[in-house]
Design a binder for these strands. Sequence first.
DNA 1: TTGTGTTTTATTGCCTCC
DNA 2: GGAGGCAATAAAACACAA
Length: 277
Amino acid sequence: MESGRFLFDQSACHGNMLFLGNRDSLFGGGGLAMGIEEATKRQSIFSYPEDLYNEEYYDDQAPEKKRRLTPEQVHLLEKSFEVENKLEPEKKTQLAKKLGMQPRQVAVWFQNRRARWKTKQLERDYDVLKSSYDSLLLSYDSIKKENEKLKSEVNFLNEKLSAKDVAGAPASGQSSHALQVEETRDSPLGFVVKVEDRLSSGSGGSAVVDEDGPQLVDSGHSYFHCNDYPGSLVAVNGLQSEDDGSDDSRGYCSEIFAAAEEPHQEGGVPMGWWAWP
DNA sequence: TTGTGTTTTATTGCCTCC
DNA sequence: GGAGGCAATAAAACACAA
């Protein structure tokens, strides 16, 4: 026991159990579960409330078992706690007198109450963080699926381009192209698509990918955003849309993906998008 | 009634602040 | 160094199912 810090010294206790000397008995004790009526029916061994605040009085009393605070006491303590969760010394004395408790008892109650509040607060914080995490996880899964889907589309388009290259087998001076998926953190999707210009020779920087598709012109290595897939960054290696010179690449994306869908469409569901490796 | 889990009250030891 | 706060802990009081 620390020096003079507590009202009762160890000699007043059995083990580490502090006997309150009936301080709580004014109202009877009985705990929260007990009704107010029942609690107030309990007999007090004190004749006057002042006795409750008399320290010497407790020391003279036969030790009694620990009692819970009455609902009235708890109610007032709770109300005080709501106003201020820490006790000024004057407030502590005032509350103790009002409730017929030891100032130390009031201080202990506030201490325990703060601990309970902190535990609850941790639980609340945990719930908030968990729901936030769950939400992010859902979002992540969704983006991941979209990522996989787009990669499949790219693979499919590559296959399509390869097939055209073989079938069309242009003479020298023509070019072939391939879409290349590169993992990157620069894109929100986690990858970029590069259109590789497999120029043979002497193209002079101009190449037609597909007679039916958009006209594409080599122009070094650049990137453009695909508006059909917000957030995706498509790297065009040596290609750019020729139509009007604007940075509107929507048409290009749409046409590419529309072309990709067309031959495999079945019942509105693009075939092959998920089947392609 | 009894065993068990939870809540409440209180102590102890350590730390910080003035 | 004393006062007060906090974390850890003990133990009584209480709740509740079997």
